[in-house]
């Protein structure tokens, strides 16, 4: 009969009208992200051996690191910059990292007011955070 579908639709919406709501209240309740989520990067400078594998594997030249040789002829990380504005967050760099110094983190509140702030100084970021993992915030 014509109109059956209309009535069925009305029934569904009424059911949903009285149904529960599924919203996650973000700013009050932080989302529980799975550990593999790729939202930003974190570096533990102590672990980094400045091998440069991450620089080579990056598809988009995001990472820029410099290192110097110390007394034992061992390379020490001097600066580590990530131009996060160019990043794909593909995770290839973290997979290539032999020591696990570079990690993906679940920190997703990265909005900034100025474009210059998208050039992350990873060493400074890791110092600023008090978490051992090097996440900011």
């Amino acid at each position: 009969m014509f109109g059956n579908g209309l009535i069925k639709g009305l029934r569904i919406t009424l059911k949903r009208f009285y149904g529960p709501n599924l919203t996650e209240y973000y700013p009050e309740v932080k989302p529980n992200l799975p550990p593999r989520t790729r939202s930003s990067m974190a570096l533990e400078p102590e672990k980094c051996i400045s091998c440069g594998l991450c620089v080579n594997i990056c598809p988009n030249q995001v990472i820029n690191l410099t290192s110097e040789k110390d007394g034992n002829n061992k390379r020490v990380l001097k600066t580590y910059h990530m131009n996060i504005g160019r990043c794909l967050l593909c995770g290839l760099c973290t997979q290539s990292c032999p020591t696990g110094a570079l990690r993906l983190s679940q920190e997703f509140e990265n909005a900034v007011y100025h474009r210059e702030e998208l050039l992350w100084d990873m060493i400074a970021r890791s110092k600023r955070s008090n978490k051992p993992s090097g996440e900011e915030g």
Binding site: P31, S39, C87, L89, F108, E109, N110, A111
Partner: peptide, 16 residues
């Protein structure tokens, strides 16, 4: 005014 990095940013990032 505001830059939201991410590829793509999560909906929560947009809200933030």
């Amino acid at each position: 005014d505001v830059y939201i990095p991410g590829c793509p940013p999560r909906p929560e990032s947009l809200m933030f």
